[in-house]
């Protein structure tokens, strides 16, 4: 693999800050993997997700810039806060930013979108006065 940094120091800071903010606001754990992944992206993303310290409440975003594909994996607990529909929206938002060549911006946007969905507390007894 040819050498080179995927992100500038500034972009790395932005992503790290977005992760920190998202974790702070939602209480979930966020992780972003950027690199080429061999084989089935979903399976590999789940494998990476399993390696995370607190996998059940973790949300992992795997971005493969070579194949133009991304995968979001939500842990068992995280799934209750970020359902598949919310993850799909975030994935679409990221993909549309990646498509214009902005990797770091897309990741920051996607994390923001995931965070917003995770923030929403489930409404209980909504049908009662």
């Amino acid at each position: 693999m040819p050498a080179g940094e995927a992100f500038s120091a500034r972009q790395e800071q932005d992503i790290a800050k977005a992760i920190a903010t998202a974790e702070q606001q939602s209480g979930l754990k966020f992780s972003v993997y950027v690199g080429s992944v061999e084989g089935d992206l979903h399976a590999q993303a789940v494998r990476l997700h399993r390696q995370l310290a607190d996998a059940d409440s973790a949300v992992l975003v795997v971005v493969d810039p070579r194949r133009n594909q991304l995968q979001i994996v939500t842990g068992v607990d995280a799934k209750r806060r970020v359902d598949d529909r919310a993850a799909g929206l975030a994935a679409a938002a990221m993909a549309s930013t990646f498509a214009v060549g902005d990797l770091a911006g897309g990741i920051v946007n996607g994390l923001g979108s995931l965070m917003e969905h995770a923030q929403k507390a489930p409404v209980l007894h909504a049908d009662q006065p």
Binding site: M1, P2, A3, G4, E5, A6, F7, E12, I15, A16, I19, E23, K29, F30, S31, V32, Y33, V34, G35, S36, L48, L52, D64, P65, R66
Partner: peptide, 9 residues
């Protein structure tokens, strides 16, 4: 893709 993998968090 030229860069080494990066894993934030």
């Amino acid at each position: 893709w030229w860069a080494a993998p990066v894993w934030f968090g």
